[in-house]
Design a protein around this nucleic acid. Structure first.
Length: 565
RNA sequence: UGGGGUAUGGUGUAACGGUAGCACAGCAGUCUCUGAAUCUGCUUGUCUAGGUUCAAAUCCUAGUACCCCAGCCA
């Protein structure tokens, strides 16, 4: 299975943002319109935290019959690249959403510039010659008010002249800024004459070298929202302090005023959402790229085997609020299991093989047994699985000295081979040097074909197996948490989060025997390997070499029992 | 120390003055040719202290804890 359905309108109702929208609709604030936008900066790949925002923004538009734009917040050319733009579009689409308009903040550079002149003419913005260090000094501190810049009272004419020359490239990088003239004594430091433009000669991925001055986020964001007639500008909590500035700009300009609403960003255990640090992991080769299956990026999760449906279900389930919580990674995993349990075809594969010779099965004979593809979905049908004298079983499914509650194979014990026969362990072959079990000599009961015994004899365990001669050998990559601590960024002073990297986050099994039905599996196909977990065909697969990623294990009660001891 | 936010079981989220509900986890059981899935039941909570009220998670007062803000990042 590998099909993706477009996202349906979310059935679940009210979180506080939808309540605000309901209220706006009731009072007619936006004439019943709902227009949202997802505004990523193209300076990295999208991660699961962005998925929350995407589901919120696009889902809200879907729910209210409104619209949602994709807008690239590309106001800082020093960090932004086309590669990121492309990946973001791909990820949004893959998640199942279709944007109504696609825009770039850079589309608005000229308009922004004109509006800046308007503000200057109104006496609400000025060109400042303070250096970055000086500006910091003048800003004051959290508890002390700032001081007015000595350039604050330049005339409109002088400001206009200087600003036009800034645009014309007459001044070196960083030498001047355009600032909003608000209040250097405001308890909200964002209102202490924030910078609107900086001089920066950087090549922009879309506007090239047309500009040497670039708008800051605060100056560009609300104005872009206003141009697009956004009704609800949904962003994360850290922008709450910026809302007064957001409103100051649009109100001073006298243009359309959207409503900014803030919600808590997603935090997940055993990983992190910092774009900067994610970039570090990639650049420092701690992972194999942005789409490494251990990464919390959407491309990483996709490669890991996650479905868009499971990611949307996860975002639905975690809810939306202003509480800055920490969600357990197992919730994400559970969302995938729930989805794949219903949709993924089952297959038999043995991760850590132990050879079994069935002494009373004829040499050279291969028998075709019928197996159900998906017990949760009758329409998935059945398939044939070859059975023969030599098979592999999971090493974990045999114990020479079985503990209590272990009802798998052991010397003298009988188990059922899934979709095949009862199998009894007659003797154990060991490596004389190491004592390691290398082979099991067993017998099967021909009367138990299909898994049931005519004499009503019961067997406690059913184990998976693969016929040795017909097995397909695949590389299988097993993944674990990228970090070994639930909060990897929570480190003592001076220590790096990198010390929390899990050294065992990837294990490669080079030659895993799998039943031959997977031989022609396509990249992106997902399967349940019975009793083991869900696996997806990785794009490293080449003709003659199958590569699987383990997306997630199955819930494992036995492992839990063992862990307790 | 200034400003802005947030506190409900282990986790996340409802309840908008009227029985604290739901989901996931956990535990026990059921079922099972996957120790999966299913199904059943159970445990666990309103940050603290006062106050208003017949009645408070919700309103008031005073605390406490945590998050964000002093980029020419977003």
């Amino acid at each position: 299975m590998s099909t993706n359905e477009p996202a349906p309108a979310p059935a679940a109702p009210s979180h506080f943002i939808h309540q605000i929208i309901d209220e706006h609709n009731r009072t007619g604030r936006f004439e019943g319109r709902v227009q949202t936008r997802f505004p990523p900066e193209p300076n990295g790949y999208l991660h699961i935290g962005h998925a929350k925002s995407i589901c919120l923004n696009f889902g809200t538009a879907l729910k209210y019959g409104g619209k949602c734009n994709l807008r690239f917040d590309d106001t800082n050319p020093s960090k932004e690249e086309q590669e990121y733009v492309d990946s973001i579009m791909e990820d949004v689409r893959w998640l199942g959403f279709q944007w109504d308009g696609i825009y770039y903040a850079s589309d608005y550079f000229e308009q922004l510039y004109q509006w800046s002149e308007d503000l200057i003419k109104k006496g609400l913005a000025y060109v400042c010659d303070l250096t970055a260090d000086q500006m910091r000094e003048y800003r004051g501190s959290l508890t002390k008010p700032g001081k007015n810049s000595p350039f604050r009272d330049r005339s409109v004419e002088e400001n206009l002249d200087l600003f036009r020359r800034m645009r014309a490239g007459e001044f070196p990088d960083g030498s001047r800024t355009l600032r909003a003239k608000i209040d250097m004594a405001s308890p909200n430091v964002n209102l202490r004459d924030p910078v609107m433009y900086r001089i920066m000669r950087a090549h922009h991925h879309r506007t090239g070298d047309a500009w040497c001055i670039y708008a800051t986020y605060d100056w560009a964001h609300g104005e872009s929202d206003s141009i697009e007639k956004i009704t609800h500008s949904i962003c994360t909590l850290e922008f709450e302090n910026h809302r007064p500035l957001y409103e100051w700009f649009v109100q001073s300009l006298g243009i359309y005023v959207p409503q900014q609403i803030e919600f808590a960003r997603l935090n997940l255990t055993y990983t992190m959402m910092s774009k900067r640090k994610l970039l570090e992991l990639v650049a420092g080769k701690h992972v194999h790229g942005w789409d490494d299956p251990r990464m919390p990026t959407i491309s990483g999760l996709r490669r890991r085997g996650y479905t868009p449906e499971s990611l949307r279900a996860f975002c639905e389930r975690i809810g939306v609020s202003k509480f800055n919580g920490l969600i357990d990674m197992s919730w994400l995993e559970e969302s995938l299991r729930a989805d794949l349990n219903k949709r993924a075809n089952r297959v038999l594969g043995v991760l850590r093989p132990l050879k079994v010779v069935i002494e009373n099965f004829p040499k050279g004979q291969v028998e075709e047994l019928e197996a159900i593809n998906n017990p949760e979905d009758a329409s998935a049908g059945t398939r044939k699985v070859p059975f023969s004298r030599e098979i592999y079983i999971e090493r974990d499914d045999f114990r020479e000295d079985p503990p209590k509650q272990f009802f798998r194979l052991a010397p003298g014990r009988e188990v059922r081979l899934r979709y095949a026969y009862f199998l009894k362990c007659e003797s154990v072959v060991k490596d004389p040097a190491t004592g390691e079990v290398t082979e099991l000599r067993c017998t099967y009961d021909p009367a138990t074909k299909g898994g049931n015994s005519p004499d009503g004899r019961k067997v406690k365990g059913t184990i998976h197996w693969v016929s040795a001669s017909t097995a397909v050998k695949a590389e299988v990559r097993l993944y674990d948490h990228l970090f070994s601590k639930p909060e990897p960024e929570d480190v003592p002073e001076g220590e790096s989060y990198l010390t929390n990297l899990n050294p065992n986050s990837l294990e490669v099994l080079p030659e895993v025997p799998i039943e031959p039905s997977v031989a022609n599996a396509k990249v992106g196909d997902r399967f349940q390997f019975e009793r083991l977990g869900y696996f997806v065909v990785d794009h490293d697969t080449k003709p003659g070499k199958l590569v699987f990623n383990r997306a997630v294990t199955l819930a494992d009660t036995w492992a839990k029992i063992e862990k307790k001891k």
